[in-house]
Structure formats: structure tokens, C-alpha cells
Nucleic acid binder design. Structure first.
Lengths: 216, 216
DNA sequence: TAGATTGTTAATCGATTAACAATC
DNA sequence: TAGATTGTTAATCGATTAACAATC
């Protein structure tokens, strides 16, 4: 897929944003775009766009630009949106519930196959198309279904133990909403941390030092 | 507060993580730490820690290290945790509800003073310590209360109009959970985007290219 | 063909790491 | 004092930007 061996993290983190903008363009029936036009819409340089895309191959055509839907499909493929990785959600509290309902896992290459909680009073309740399962059945479920990805919506205090259990069950990929820093405890693991607390503090810094801090 | 004029974004984004780790150390009654010890726990280099901290001043003592609670307090102050910036939440759907309940705004220098929605069937309902307010009353409320920060938990389609309304009401800081890219439309604005969809896609890339992609 | 725009190489810029003198 | 560890300068590394030849 990729031309070179090592794609930098900076490039990877821009890919979903390209994918999103190309989706918007497609909706607006714009079929062709140049790196310069796209750079103006996305507020980055045309050079960077061309460099980024060329990590993965030549998607453009000299003198013309890029075909929007072709490029979007290609980036989607690089991101793995056409996969169906079995995914489980641990923790059906407020945040877990919001993600279960709000996130389109299928569009991101994931298939949500189970939701677990330890709270007896909600086990068995429906959540979206699912029924909340007992965390005590985690081992049996995973041995049968072999999920690859876990979404962690659990308190920091519970995180370490759950991650240990999940890694033993062959899960090596985590979308982590707890404050626990998985990467400091485990290696050979793919982690995407969403530290909402850190994010709000970053905003707070920006507000108090008002220098238009923005994260693309 | 800061020594130089321009603190890089890379440094700023690490501050909340330092703050978090120092909080953990404090809980464990560790009163003193060296940059080397901290670097091992946080999986970064001691050089980087010293460089980062020295953007804001000399918090350490040669031959000794850093006083944990002093340093934590100092970073907290830099981040503005002791402020009480008036904050409103727009959108009380699943995600908005989760944030209202789950996030400790006070600990991040923000004070949640109002929650708004356009859905008549939930307006008036309680949410945490608040009552969901009618978005039609946004102007009157803001003129009276003068909030500074808005948390956006609204659909992408509604985002542009809401941001326009809010900027007119003097709100220039946004914690944005919608897919709308505020920074491409407005300037003179402080934005922290939490694009959950982008985050999941980044994880998907990591899973499909399994190279221990991690975000510190 | 002429004009436009890519793919790619080279130059610049910034961030991280290493080294070490200052000093507790 | 000797040992430890910071604060800070210098060296390295990587990412971004600029430039331009290739080519549609």
C-alpha cells in the first residue's frame, strides 16, 4: 500500500481529515480538486498535501489535479474503512452509551459486536442494537468471537486490570477514553488515546493565553 | 508567566499530561522526582521534560530534582485550572449528556453555567445540576451571563450557524465535538477540536498497519 | 503546443536529543 | 567537599516549505 516503509505519525494523523474534507467535496458534487484549492479549504500548504499523498502513491494527474472520489476511496482504503474488525466496548456508562449510539463504527472499519459492563443493574438492558453483557462473561465471549479492538470507557482505577485481561484474550488494539496511560505499561499494542480531560485543559491554556491555539 | 513569547503547540499539548502524572505521583505520596525518573514513567526523554518546563521557568533545584506538588501547582496555574471561566454546553444529546456528567469542568478552570438544546421534548429536563434550556433563549442568556467558552455537541449541519451566533455573542473559545472545522471558517478564535471520528480512523490505520501507533 | 499542476528533490525551519557547565 | 541533577547551549533529527523538472 504505502511506498516507503515508515509513514510519520504527523502524516497519519492528517489522513482522516483529508478523508473528511474529500467527503464534503463529494457531497458538493465537486469531482476534481488541485492541491492548491484543497490547501486553501483545509488551511495548510499545497506542498504538504502533495508530500502527504505521495507517501502512499501518485493519486493525482499533472496539469489536472486529483479526482475527488478516487482519492477519497484510496485514502479510505489506506485507513481501512472497508474492513470489519470485531470491536467490543467496555463500560456502558454515560460516555460508553454516547459512543455506542453516536459513533458509526462501520464507517471506520470496525464492527461493534458486544458491550460489557460490571454494573448488575444495567446488564441485560438494551443499548442501541445490543444488549449490555456481564463483564464476567468477557473471557467466554472473546474466546468464541475473537474481537480485535476494545473501546475503553471505564474509570482509570479499573483500566489496568481490564487491559491485562484483554491482552491475554488476544486484544492488542485499544481506543482508550480512560485516564490510564496504556502505552506506558504495555508494548506491542496499538493505542489511540482520547484524553478528554487533557483536551479541555489544552483549551483552558489557550483561553488564558489567547493565542488562537488550534488543533487541525 | 512564560519566559519566552512563543511556546510551541507541541509543548502545550504535553502540559496536561505532565499535570496528570504529577497528580498520580502526589496520590502515591511521592514528594520529589528527577527529570530522569519522570521520563521513565512517562516514556519520554529527560531532556525534553527539562526543556519543556524551562519554557515557563526554573521549577527544579540542581542536585535534587523537582518538588512534585509545587511543580503540579505551577503547571496547573499555567493551564489555568484555578480560573472559573463561564462555560455553556450546546447540545444535550448522548454526547452532551455524557460530557455534562462525566467531565469535571471545575478542575479544568471552567464553570458550566448552562446547557442548551433545540429539542422541545427535553427542554426543561434536569441534567446533572442543570436544567436544559431552550436554544431560543441563547441570546438573552449570554447577554446576561457573558459566558466565554462553548462546548459544541451538535450535528455538523447545525455547527456553522451556532458558531456564528455564539461569536456574535462574544464567545471566542470552543471545545468542538462536531465534525465542523471551525478554524477554517473563523479566525481570532481559540478552538480545541475533538474529532472522535478522526480518532477512530487513526486507530483503524494503526490496526491495519500494526506499527504500535501511539499518541502520548 | 501552451498552461497547469503534479511528483520529487533541495532548502528551511522547528522540535528533540545530547552534552555540559552551573549549582544545590 | 563530592554527587546529583538542573538549566541551557549546541548538535541532530525530522517535518514542513519551496522550487522545479516531468508530464498530462
Amino acid at each position: 500500500m504505502s511506498k516507503g516503509i515508515n509513514i510519520s505519525n504527523s502524516v497519519i494523523r492528517r489522513l482522516p481529515r483529508y478523508y473528511r474534507f474529500l467527503g464534503e467535496l463529494e457531497k458538493q458534487n465537486i469531482s476534481k480538486i488541485s492541491s492548491r484549492e484543497l490547501s486553501e479549504r483545509m488551511r495548510l500548504t499545497a506542498s504538504q498535501i502533495r508530500q502527504d499523498l505521495n507517501c502512499f502513491g501518485g493519486f493525482g494527474q499533472q496539469g489536472y489535479g486529483y479526482n475527488v472520489s478516487e482519492l477519497r476511496t484510496a485514502i479510505g482504503h489506506i485507513l481501512g474503512v472497508d474492513k470489519h474488525r470485531k470491536t467490543i466496548l467496555i463500560g456502558a456508562g454515560n460516555l460508553g452509551t454516547a459512543l455506542a449510539v453516536h459513533i458509526n463504527f462501520e464507517k471506520s472499519g470496525c464492527k461493534l459486536i458486544g458491550i460489557f459492563d460490571s454494573n448488575k443493574s444495567i446488564i441485560g438492558s438494551p443499548l442501541g442494537e445490543h444488549t449490555i453483557l456481564d463483564i464476567d462473561n468477557l473471557e467466554a465471549f472473546c474466546k468464541a468471537e475473537k474481537p480485535e479492538i476494545a473501546v475503553l470507557c471505564i474509570p482509570t482505577s479499573a483500566a489496568k486490570a481490564i487491559v491485562d485481561r484483554l491482552t491475554k484474550l488476544g486484544i492488542h488494539s485499544f481506543w482508550n477514553f480512560s485516564h490510564f496511560d496504556i502505552c506506558t505499561e504495555h508494548s506491542d499494542i496499538t493505542v489511540e488515546n482520547v484524553h478528554l480531560g487533557d483536551s479541555l485543559l489544552t483549551l483552558s491554556y489557550g483561553v488564558n493565553n489567547r493565542n488562537t491555539s488550534e488543533k487541525k
